[in-house]
Amino acid sequence: MTTLSENELRSAHLVASVLLSYPDDALYGGRRTLAEAVAALPGGEVRTRLTAFLDHLGATAQSDLAAHYVATFDLKRRCCLYLTYYAHGDTRKRGAALVRFKHAFRAAGFELTDGELPDHLPVVCELLARGAVKQARRLLLENRAGLELLRKALEAEGSPYADVVIAVLATLPAASLRDQEAALRLAAQGPPAEEVGLEPFAVMEGHR
């Protein structure tokens, strides 16, 4: 775990949130600002990993990175940015888990407006960046096994996005034996496959 002040932690998660979102014009236009924010972080794995991804960003055409993003996160189930998917798949239990995320956002004074599910990793990182450090860290720690599986899947794919996920993990306490065992169980079992509608949880109205 890289030791960061609260302001540094929020800055790192804001950068991670942007980098884990679809690579649009705003991302490419904001590369200098993102690089300055990362350069201001103390030395360690968080800064190293975020810098590595920014270097890749600078050397990769937007269309190529966008194609990789879709192929990785939209087409590969094991590279899912939705944290509750790993433990619950598309089951009713996932709906209950999403409600927990929704309540955490509301308790922090935030509600999504763009139709994104609240367990989307970039959204949780943004929640922390906006000041809800306690709530967002709790959500990340509760879903650490899934986050570890995402990291492993991205590393197996050779995806540069693994660096960003590793940076997020580096802001958390070291994984306990229990966390490691949970990740191994999820990897062995895979997510449940009961298909149910999640529409009631797909849109949270309000403001960011």
Rank of each mutant, 00 (worst) to 15 (best):
Y22P: 14
A26W: 05
F201L: 15
V165N: 13
L149M: 06
A40R: 11
A35P: 03
R47E: 04
A136N: 04
G115L: 06
G44P: 05
A156Y: 02
I166R: 13
R47C: 00
L75I: 07
A97G: 08
R92A: 11
A12M: 03
L27Q: 05
D163N: 14
P192F: 01
A187C: 08
L149N: 04
E6P: 10
R208K: 03
R130I: 04
H68T: 01
A104E: 00
G131R: 11
A175P: 01
R10P: 05
A87T: 07
L20Q: 02
R10M: 11
R49N: 08
A104P: 13
N143P: 09
L141N: 01
E157M: 02
L98C: 12
A16G: 01
H68A: 13
V123E: 09
R144K: 14
L41I: 03
L4Y: 01
V99S: 13
A129F: 00
E116M: 14
L121G: 00
Y85W: 05
L169I: 02
A162K: 08
Q62S: 13
A162F: 08
A52G: 12
A71I: 01
Y22R: 10
T91M: 06
L19V: 03
H120A: 00
R77L: 03
A170W: 03
A107H: 15
E155G: 07
P191W: 06
M1C: 10
L186Y: 12
G197P: 06
D119W: 09
E157T: 02
F73H: 07
